[in-house]
Simulated assay, not measured.
Amino acid sequence: MNKRTDIEVIINNKRYTLRGYESEEYLQKVATYINNKYAEFKKQDFYRSLDTEMKNVLMNINVADDYFKLKKQQEQVESESDKKSEEIFDLKHEIILLQTKLESAQNELAATKSEYLEEQKKVIRLETELNESRKNR
């Protein structure tokens, strides 16, 4: 198990100690995300007029909104990935079928070439016999 990490961060101009089993970099990234959310809200005129409880509720709603949007995006990516995997499987299957057909066609071509050569030999033999029989007459 990872060891517990304690890190002091400043969120919304207040000092907090975050504790967790994640890295310091990760915990700092979380604090930075929250600070960026506060900065976004502070730019809005309406935010200043809200009481502390409403500000906290608004923050929670926005973080939850980000979470659900990212979760939906991840599900879409996973769905697309599954579809791509299925397409790849189907294409590999099609390649194998086409390779089998190609091998079969190559074997058939080789057999036909062999038959053609045998037939050419017969033609040459028959022409030779015909020429010899004409000479012998």
Rank of each mutant, 00 (worst) to 15 (best):
residue 49 S to W: 04
residue 70 L to E: 09
residue 30 V to K: 03
residue 99 Q to K: 15
residue 10 I to W: 06
residue 28 Q to H: 07
residue 114 S to I: 02
residue 65 D to F: 11
residue 1 M to Y: 02
residue 91 L to Y: 09
residue 120 Q to M: 14
residue 41 F to R: 01
residue 128 T to A: 14
residue 42 K to G: 03
residue 86 E to M: 09
residue 80 E to W: 03
residue 128 T to K: 12
residue 28 Q to A: 11
residue 81 S to P: 00
residue 111 A to G: 12
residue 39 A to G: 00
residue 127 E to I: 04
residue 3 K to V: 07
residue 25 E to Q: 15
residue 123 V to S: 07
residue 62 N to K: 04
residue 39 A to T: 13
residue 18 L to S: 06
residue 110 A to N: 06
residue 11 I to Y: 07
residue 125 R to N: 13
residue 108 E to H: 09
residue 30 V to E: 06
residue 44 Q to W: 01
residue 52 T to N: 10
residue 23 S to T: 14
residue 98 L to E: 11
residue 64 A to P: 02
residue 122 K to V: 15
residue 98 L to W: 00
residue 62 N to T: 01
residue 78 E to R: 09
residue 55 K to W: 05
residue 80 E to T: 08
residue 94 E to F: 08
residue 125 R to E: 13
residue 37 K to F: 01
residue 97 L to E: 15
residue 49 S to Y: 08
residue 14 K to W: 00
residue 124 I to P: 02
residue 117 L to H: 08
residue 85 S to C: 10
residue 91 L to F: 09
residue 78 E to Q: 15
residue 18 L to E: 04
residue 54 M to A: 14
residue 135 K to E: 10
residue 96 I to P: 00
residue 122 K to D: 15
residue 72 K to F: 05
residue 22 E to L: 07
residue 113 K to V: 10
residue 42 K to P: 01
residue 18 L to N: 04
residue 75 E to F: 10
residue 37 K to T: 04
residue 118 E to L: 12
residue 101 K to L: 11
residue 134 R to G: 03
residue 132 E to G: 00
residue 128 T to N: 12
residue 59 M to L: 15
residue 15 R to E: 11
residue 134 R to K: 13
residue 85 S to T: 15
residue 9 V to Q: 07
residue 7 I to W: 00
